[in-house]
Design a protein around this nucleic acid. Structure first.
Length: 188
DNA sequence: CGGCCGATCCACT
DNA sequence: GTGGATCGGCCGA
């Protein structure tokens, strides 16, 4: 497959720029020889130790948050509300626990498989919990490399669109940090 | 060890 | 627009 993203790409140090840059790239999973994927259209940046909305705020280090402390280029997947598996891309250097939540994809590959995983409900892959269900991602995949064959990303050099910026969703508990403009949407 | 709560989704009104 | 589902993580005792 052409144009796969590299570890250097994921280890860039400007995480909000990277969150914008991820828009328009295709996110794939290939589990049990079932290829599914779609174009990333919504992301949120979580900026580590200084970001009250981030699980790693204050460098809080637990079994759950441990993957965020590794160097960029792996998955951070955790369970939300007891039922939703949320997929993040770990970024930045080792011991700088930044991550980018993927909130929505525009489905392009393996759509019948994704429909089946979603039990034909809609939306198919818009919303952080629904897209992981469509792609088959669970907490068992936390820590998995994003430059190997189960979860990986590909560029779409010719894709153009407009980027919209808003505050992040569902982080009211983060006080002033809830207002930060770290959510990015692609309109194309 | 008990209690609280969440980076959500869905069915229902 | 609203509330129930559902459970691991985290914290304080």
């Amino acid at each position: 497959m052409e144009n796969l993203l590299t570890l250097d790409y994921f280890r860039q140090e400007d995480t909000t720029a990277l969150a914008k840059s991820l828009l328009g790239k295709t996110l794939f999973t290939n589990f049990n020889n079932q290829l599914t994927g779609g174009i990333i259209i919504e992301t949120e940046a979580y900026l580590g130790a200084t970001d009250r909305a981030c699980h790693a705020f204050g460098n809080r280090r637990t079994n759950r948050t441990e993957p965020m402390f590794a160097a960029g280029g792996i998955a951070y997947v955790y369970l939300c509300y007891g039922m939703h598996h949320l997929f993040n891309i770990v970024t930045h250097k080792k011991d700088t626990p930044h991550a980018i939540l993927i909130r929505a994809i525009h489905p392009t590959h393996g759509i019948p498989i994704m429909r089946e995983r979603r039990k034909n409900r809609s939306p198919l892959s818009s919303g952080p919990g629904t897209l992981t269900q469509a792609l088959g991602i669970t907490t068992s995949h936390t820590g998995l490399s994003l430059t190997r064959n189960q979860i990986f990303l590909q560029e779409n050099p010719n894709l153009v669109g407009e980027i919209q910026t808003t505050p992040r969703i569902g982080v009211d508990y983060a006080g002033e940090d809830a207002k930060l403009p770290y959510r990015f949407l692609l309109k194309f």
